[in-house]
Amino acid sequence: MNFDPLNPRFPLGDFVHEVIRWLQSALSGLIGGVRWLLDLLYGSLEYTLATPIFLIMIAIFAAVAWLASGWKLAVVTAIGFYLIRALDLWLPAMQTMALVLVACVMAILLAIPVGILAAKVRAVSLVVKPVLDFMQSMPALAYLVPVISVFSIGQVPGIIATIIFAMPPGVRLTELAIRQVDHEVVEAGQAFGATAWSILRKIQLPLAMPTIMAGINQVIMLALSMVVLAGMVGAQGLGGEIVGALSRVNVPLGVEAGLAVVIVAVYLDRVTAALGHRSPLARALKAST
């Protein structure tokens, strides 16, 4: 290949494309497995959420809100989801919830161990940090393209793009949370002969939990902000409705679908935030003096 320094041209994109194509053939088994797993998770969750009569689901959502937070959130939840049904967006809303929940569960399952590892091993932290920066600052639309080329269109690329986009705060806040656990308390665990695993489980994780929960909350919020993009790659749900509204300049549908996203977002945000206040540490600190 000839390289003219006065007229530099470096085909990075082609190169990445080649790599992706190579990965596709080399890891076809893995890619197939991932697709199968995410399809299964999404499919069964969507079925569970969308099949029952909407009133039953509203009751369940409200009950969860009540348990996590209190009756006020339960009332708001019931009104909000009733409104979604009244806007005739029930199925897309349930599909969005299924997508967001699957993506978040996967993101959290990946983020927390990586975060813990990064907190414990300096080398991991040094590698993970720039990767996370890259994941967050790369425009989401840009990495949708290779994701589509690997996973084609539909729910799965939507979920994968969401995972990539939503994972970083989970990793970062987990690492931070573990690191900021009082060093002396960890030393106390060591001084009494605890194993590293026991210290992690009985000291570091419980003390880090409020911050980790804040990270999880962030993950969910970012995942919701990705639903529109997921809609662009063919994922069903509120995102798909919004993309449709955009392409047809359908103002009423756009407003309604947008409002439905907000309702789902508020619900998930408040419930996870309330769960964060129910960790053993938070409960202990709430005990009256």
Binding site: E184, V185, A188, F192, A194, I203, P206, L207, P280
Partner: peptide, 23 residues
């Protein structure tokens, strides 16, 4: 080392180092 710390040496810390989430 862990066994020694467990059975032979215990420690009291300057800032108490108690587990706040436990009674």
């Amino acid at each position: 080392l862990r066994a020694t710390r467990r059975d032979k040496i215990s420690m009291v810390f300057q800032h108490f180092a108690l587990l706040p989430h436990r009674t």
